[in-house]
Amino acid sequence: MTVPTTTELTTAPEQHAPSTETMATAARAPKGPSGPSALARIGSSFAMFRNRKSLTGLVILGVFILVAIFADVIAPYGPLDKDYTALKQPPSWQHLFGTSHMGEDIFSQIVYGTRGVLIVGFLSAILATVIAVAVGVTAGIVTGWKSEALSALTNVFLVLPGLPLMIIIATQFDNPSLLLIAAVLALTGWAWGARVLRAQTMSLRNRDFVQAARANGEPLGRIITVEMLPNLMAIIASSFVGTVTAAILGLTTLAFIGVIPITNLNWGTILFWAQQNGAFPDYWWWYVPAGLCIALLGMSLSLINFGIDEYVNPRLRSAGERARAMRKKGIKVSSAVTAVRPVTAAKKPAGAKDA
């Protein structure tokens, strides 16, 4: 057996220790494939839209958006063009959805009315989401009387009756614009999202990464924008989609009861004129298409919201992944799968006799 000398024991570690230049080069080297790439981060941001429900909802919503953009090309007539030779006519090749009591083409009114519905819905949701994020996140991150004051403000708007408040505000103007209508709907629809964001922010402010950022002396603005908001994006997206749905229903309700002037053409205005001129129930083509459009758009937003909920909730996400894996194997998700084992006779001890 060879015993190493004192010189060998002293120089051996020096042969394997990295030099200062080597360590500096390794520090400057780019990260390997283990770090997430930009495409991977972008793909993970849209992971909530990978299931069939979300994709179906996005497709339906995309169709409505295309109809709103290309309304001038799709609509065969102007929304207020009148044909006095065809009054209250049923659907035909000349008028796909029939005509109104003034000979107006219902299909053209549906197409042009899509613009007003989507503009008010998305604009109102953007305004309401901005208010909800500002109030909810601030109320969750601060403490003391500031948090309690913002929480009390949220509770006040949460219990206010939305529809009467919208009617009172909208009737103060002779010809309210779409921006004003969206602002009114946003004013009555931000409180629920702010309440949820406040609760989630209060949960996040005690996490280790937030406490570490505070210990490092990070400013409050950076903690909110860099540390907290990325973890709240799924909830903000869900709140945004829900606010769009509520704003569309609020717009059509205000138009149906006659609060919004007839110059603001939308699906609710069509239902208003149908109700005013006795279209129910005989002239079904006057009110059924508008009602179906409201239902389809609401269904698409609900499907998108289901996908976001599945992405946020770990239990729903694991259940969805398990269901998709079962479909790939050809197993019905609704079928009960039970493992059946063959029954074998129990071995008798040696020397035992039958009874």
Score class of each variant (00 low, 15 high):
Asn231Gly: 08
Tyr283Ala: 15
Ser318Asn: 10
Trp267Ala: 02
Leu254Lys: 04
Pro91Asn: 11
Gln276Met: 07
Gly307Cys: 06
Val343Arg: 14
Ile169Asn: 06
Pro281Asp: 15
Thr245Cys: 04
Trp267Glu: 01
Pro219Lys: 12
Gly162Ser: 12
Asn266Tyr: 13
Val156Asp: 04
Trp192Tyr: 09
Asn277Gly: 04
Ile141Val: 11
Ala213Gly: 12
Ala350Trp: 14
Ala212Thr: 08
Pro18Arg: 14
Trp192Met: 11
Gly98Ser: 10
Ser108Lys: 02
Trp145Gln: 09
Ile224Ser: 01
Ala149Asn: 14
Thr56Gln: 05
His16Ser: 10
Ile131Lys: 10
Ala247Asp: 02
Arg315Gly: 15
Val135Asp: 09
Ala170Arg: 05
Val337Asp: 02
Val130Ser: 12
Ile257Pro: 02
Glu21Ser: 09
Ala26Cys: 00
Ser238Tyr: 08
Ala350Asp: 15
Lys328Met: 07
Ile181Gly: 03
Asn266Trp: 12
Val312Gly: 13
Pro33Gln: 10
Gly291Arg: 08
Ser203Gln: 15
Ala323Gln: 14
Asp208Met: 13
Asn155Ala: 15
Trp285Gly: 01
Ile262Trp: 12
Val59Leu: 12
Leu58Gln: 09
Val241Trp: 00
Leu127Ser: 06
Arg41Leu: 07
Lys82Leu: 07
Asp72Tyr: 07
Gln172Asp: 12
Trp145Tyr: 15
Phe46Arg: 00
Pro230Ile: 05
Val142Asn: 04
Ile131Glu: 01
